Amino acid sequence: MAVTVKIGIIGGTGLDDPEILQNKKETTVETPFGSPSDTIIEGTINNVPCALLARHGRKHNIAPHHVNYRANIWALKSLGCTHVLVSTACGSLKEGIPPGSFVILDNFIDRTHGRELTFYDGGKESPAGICHIPMEPVFCQRTRQAVIKAATTVGLKCVDGGTCVTIQGPRFSTKAESNLFRSWGADIVNMTLVPEVVLAKEAGLLYAAVAVATDYDCWRDCGNKVNVADVLEMFKKNVEKVKLIFVEAVSTIAAEKWDDTIKEAQVVFPWLQSSPI
């Protein structure tokens, strides 16, 4: 029997708009790791089942380092999602990625600390064992290509691939840190990709991220330095474009057969087959 595709969408401010869904309903989910960031809105996009979750809450009141990433991913998995598409506001570390650019990420460098990085923490209700998850490739390559195809279809350019440095937040980088990240060859910096992408991989979800460059961080000697007001303003300018990509990506994904890819993602470790997730 073919697997039914269901797509989870995790969005930032403005990208938690339930109006992109038809037949919507609110679903409250509790997990062994606590509550997700907000009520999940289920519905359809072009008849494809979807579940929408606001990463920072619909009131945007949850800081990046306080997001319950484990509950968010567990909740989407428990609702039957097979894929997860996410948006993330980022600072650009390269002149060639100006504010307003879209980057379909393919790697990360983790500079967070103190975040819960795995479901396999030895807790009473957690999956049994220890999960040494391979992180290459970081993202589902098929899902990434579906997102790139969707962006092209709606007439939007995007950068195919990029390395994101995820910092702890909520503060922005210092200039010295920003230049260090540039010396590492990183493309963008954000506060939310890790551990979200790691947990999605543990859960066997096919995950892809659209990074929206909102600023040049603080490494440049000319121009404005990164600040919250400018980040939010640039993100809002691009909200409708990201919605277009997501809506088209849902249809693009649903038009393909994913049985083998989903099966492969869920048997990286045998206990995923019998896990409560």
Rank of each mutant, 00 (worst) to 15 (best):
I7V: 15
I10P: 05
D17F: 01
E26P: 01
T28D: 12
D38I: 13
P49D: 06
C50K: 02
L52K: 13
L52F: 13
R58H: 00
I62V: 15
A63C: 08
Y69A: 05
R70P: 08
V84H: 03
S87Y: 04
T88W: 08
G91L: 01
S92V: 10
L93V: 14
G96W: 09
P99C: 00
I104K: 01
I104L: 10
L105V: 09
N107E: 14
R111E: 10
F119E: 13
K124E: 15
I133H: 04
P134V: 07
K149S: 11
A150H: 00
A151T: 08
V154K: 14
V159H: 09
D160Q: 04
T166C: 11
F172N: 03
G185R: 13
A186G: 12
I188D: 06
V189W: 04
P195G: 12
A203L: 02
L205D: 10
A213S: 11
D217L: 11
D217Q: 11
C218Y: 10
D221R: 15
N224S: 14
N227P: 14
E233F: 14
E240P: 08
K241R: 15
V242H: 02
A249E: 13
A249N: 14
W258L: 00
T261K: 01
A265T: 07
Q266V: 00
